[in-house]
Every structure is written in structure tokens, then in C-alpha cells.
Design a protein around this nucleic acid. Sequence first.
DNA 1: TCTGCCATGTAAGTTGTTACATGATTAT
DNA 2: ATAATCATGTAACAACTTACATGGCAGA
Lengths: 178, 178
Amino acid sequence: MALAHAILASLVECPCSGYDLAKRFDGSVGFFWVASHQQIYRELPKLEELGWIESEAIAQFPRPDKKLYYITELGKQQLREWIDKPCEPTLIKDDLLVKIFAGYVVNSEKILEQIEYHEKAHRERLLVYKQIEQQYFQLPIEQMPESEKFRYLTLLNGINYETYWLAWCKQAIELLEK
Amino acid sequence: MALAHAILASLVECPCSGYDLAKRFDGSVGFFWVASHQQIYRELPKLEELGWIESEAIAQFPRPDKKLYYITELGKQQLREWIDKPCEPTLIKDDLLVKIFAGYVVNSEKILEQIEYHEKAHRERLLVYKQIEQQYFQLPIEQMPESEKFRYLTLLNGINYETYWLAWCKQAIELLEK
DNA sequence: TCTGCCATGTAAGTTGTTACATGATTAT
DNA sequence: ATAATCATGTAACAACTTACATGGCAGA
């Protein structure tokens, strides 16, 4: 139930609506856990029933009301317990690699095109992450508040991830062009 | 439908039974696409119905019969078309990073323990991959047959993946110990 | 006028996980 | 004896994707 806990992790920072959650899952939280608005809207009533979150209708006339969700004490406790429970490293699961594996059944050029496309996408994403780093994480580590450190670590992971893919794409192109 | 295509990618190499497929998805193919035996057994009749694969019962008395699956021409064509169709890079989706993101709500030591556990797991996996590299991919790239090149690329990706995680774990431990 | 943003959902279908179920053979 | 391997599945549930559905407001 990691989606549930990802929602809790986001709500513990700051209460917000389903819509806002969906946006966060398209930005910061989304850098390591993607969820569509459909998933989120379906999950919220479940979490409310469990008593992990509660909601409050906020009138904002003439705009439609929004439901403000916030985490409960029980929810925080659940989040803490989940964080403390060990988990296994995530395994790679990647379409492109399946394609590469069977790449010899098609024209090499088509494969190369795809790798080049991925290379571009990863380069762009890396740039975005580096810009975020420049903008929000300028303080030296020693002066960073605790919660900032954790956020920074997730960003660093993203930077390392994109760097690894970028490097692999270059290797792959080089190897296939031989 | 990447599971379907991952199965095709495996069968195009060599026909085999559901059981054998499950084993491959626990080894070579499993390095970039994991699937349980339940998933595989459920998928096989579907693929047969589509005409992408066919099966033959092999008697092996006194052992129980096994169904040998092989890819059809239509299946190969489907695989080629799928490979040529562009796809988007896979986004990170990782429990540990959700935990890190909300890491400030628990004791840092617990988080450190988990990162250390992951570090160990990644180091071990990296070692396995490097041993495979030493054993099966000794030829210089120029002399590698085409299909070997593609297999090698998937292995290289695995090596880069584990290396990136390992490096991040080290960074994370260092940063959190400050 | 049209695009984008705010705001919330339902429905159908696919994919993935966990648990259950059986039964023979082979190696220790 | 008993554990591991060969061999194949079903059932229930959880998670995820894709498409459908609505309607107002703000800015170019």
C-alpha cells in the first residue's frame, strides 16, 4: 500500500485537496512516486474510512468547494510504522530494456532512434533536477534543516538516476554504431 | 502489454514451457522485467488465443507432460511492431524514496539501517552482474555477435543501475551521519 | 473564442500480488 | 524422512491505466 503512504507522506507536510495532491504527484513527490488523479481520488475515501486522514469542506465561492484533507494522529503513527518496516530494493522494470533484449529481430536503426530519444528525455530531466538543486538547495549540508536534508536526498537520487541512464544511452549508441 | 512482449522476447530466443519461462523471468529476463509464475501462466493462454504463440504437449514419462510454447510468425511480427513503436522512459517508483521523503518523522537511525540494508543488497547484485560479465562477455565488442551485443547492453544497464544506487546509498549515509 | 487551470469524480479493463492447491521425482 | 525441483494451475484482491464525464473561471 505504498500509494496510501505516499499520500500520507505528502499530507504530513501540509494539508491539501485531492487536486493539490495530484499536482504534487506530478511534481516533487512524483519524482519518485507517480500517481494519477484517478488513483488519488479513489484512495482518499479509503484512507478517511481507516481514520488515517480527515477532511473538511472549504467553501470558496464562487469557485466549487474543495475538500481539505489532513493527516490524523493515527495516520502519522501508521506512516511511522510503515517507514520503520524494512522493504526490498525496487527491481528494474523497463520497456526499453525488453526491446533491447530482443533488439536483434529488428533493424538496428530503429533501436538507435529510440535510445537517442530516451537520451534526450533523460538529459532534459537531469537539467530540471539540477535547476531545482541550484534554486532550492544552496545551503551547505551542515546548515540544512533536517527535513530539507531528506528532500535533498530524494533529489540527489533523481539526479543519479538520470545520470546513470544518460551514461548508459551513450554507451549503447556507441556500442551499436560499431 | 509489455508482459506479453517480454514473453515473446524470451520465446523468440528459444521455445520453452511456462515453468521454464518463469525461471527465465527469475534470471536473465528478470534483470529488467520481473513476472511471477502466476502472471505467466495466466498470460500464455491469452497469447495462444491471439495466435502469437502455439503450444505442443511433450510427453516425458514418467514425469508429467509439459507444454512447449513457441512463437508464431504473427507473434514475431507483433514483437517487431512493438519494438519499433516509441515508448517513454520509466519513471522512478520506489518505496525507500517515499520513506526518505518523510524520513524526518521517524528516528534517523531506523532510516540509516534501511539505507545500509539496501546498500548491501545493491553491492551483492552488482557483484552478480560483474561475475556474469566476466563469465559470458569476454569478447571485445567488435567480435561480439549481434544478439550478444543486445544482451550485453541489458547487462550493462543492470551494472549501471546497481552502481548508481550504491553510490547514492553512500552519499545518503554520509549526509545523514552529519 | 479558446486554452488552461481549478475541482471532482465514475467505469472498464489490465496488471500485479498473495494465498491456495496438487502431485511426482531427485538428491541429501 | 525431508527438502528441493519439476510442472501447472485457480481465486481473490489490490493497483494501475485509459477513457469518459462535468462545469466554472481567468487570461490571451
